[in-house]
Design a binder for these strands. Structure first.
Lengths: 153, 153
DNA sequence: CAGCATTCGTTGCATCCGCAATGAGGTCAA
DNA sequence: TTGACCTCATTGCGGATGCAACGAATGCTG
């Protein structure tokens, strides 16, 4: 009988742990955004980027807030339809789109941003003793190419 | 002109950072699982749990490897169809399902587990100076109820 | 200027997802 | 034993997702 499988502890596997923790941190806030404002996570990222970057293209969103372009495009469309975002063509390069907050979008962000800020502060307080280590670790993961190791062929 | 929006740095927002880092860590390995073995992340979690827990029910998977029950059910079905997993009824309680690895499933895990183990070791090596802080921070997030803060009504 | 490659955003499609409803099985008390 | 209630797993459904294909616009080379 083959009981020869190597031991493996999923609960210590870093990709798993990070995924579960990330879902957990996002869930509470995301639920609130959705129920109170009808905003999804993708839409929220778009709004936040517009709030401090002004006029932005889809590919800008893709690069800056880590949204795959079709996801960014659809999130932007929903926001336009909801009246929070205005979409114009870029006169210098008509392939590009210029997304920016409408007045009602700016008003919305006046409510949303303090919520996020408070949540961030709460999280930082919770992990205060380990915050530096956490951030350093995340920076490391983001800087490295994690798949480039020795197992490739 | 309303430039009165509060500053907010998405790139420092912990739910965002964790989500992006988690996607990054999972992506490389997940791509490989999919291309070489045709296995998704959900299916992989099921397999790993079966590899060291023996016979398991769906609700077991839900609790242990953080898979929503319909997701666990569908992942299990795909694995049964692929021949890696055997599904029997629990004779003591016929509501429950008993999932276990087939021989070919065990063979598969003989290939998969070392891959995951090597990846984990590589990640631990990368963040070695901050590993303790990272794990402590993740434990904190998992222990607390992150949405329970003062902003609720 | 003509021709070809590249960039950008959208959309079609197959799949996946979560939630709620369903149905089969089990428990408990009268 | 019967009937009300609970637990499991599956499935239907609306919506989201990622990828590839596409059309429009631009850049590049000769």
């Amino acid at each position: 009988m083959p009981t020869d499988l190597p031991d493996f502890d999923l609960s210590r596997f870093l990709p798993y742990r990070l995924t579960v923790a990330a879902e957990r941190l996002s869930a509470a806030l995301a639920r609130r955004y959705r129920s109170e404002f009808g905003i999804s996570v993708a839409e929220w990222r778009v709004l936040v980027h517009l709030a401090d970057a002004g006029a932005v293209s889809i590919r800008d969103l893709e690069a800056r807030v880590h949204l795959e372009k079709s996801k960014a495009s659809r999130a932007a469309s929903r926001l336009v339809e909801a009246g929070y975002v205005v979409k114009t063509a870029n006169p210098d390069d008509r392939r590009l789109v210029r997304l920016s907050l409408s007045d009602s979008g700016r008003t919305l962000m006046t409510d949303l941003l303090p919520l996020a800020r408070a949540y961030q502060e709460r999280l930082e307080y919770l992990v205060a003793p380990h915050l530096d280590g956490l951030e350093a670790a995340l920076d490391t993961f983001m800087a490295e190419e994690p798949g480039g190791g020795g197992t490739g062929s």
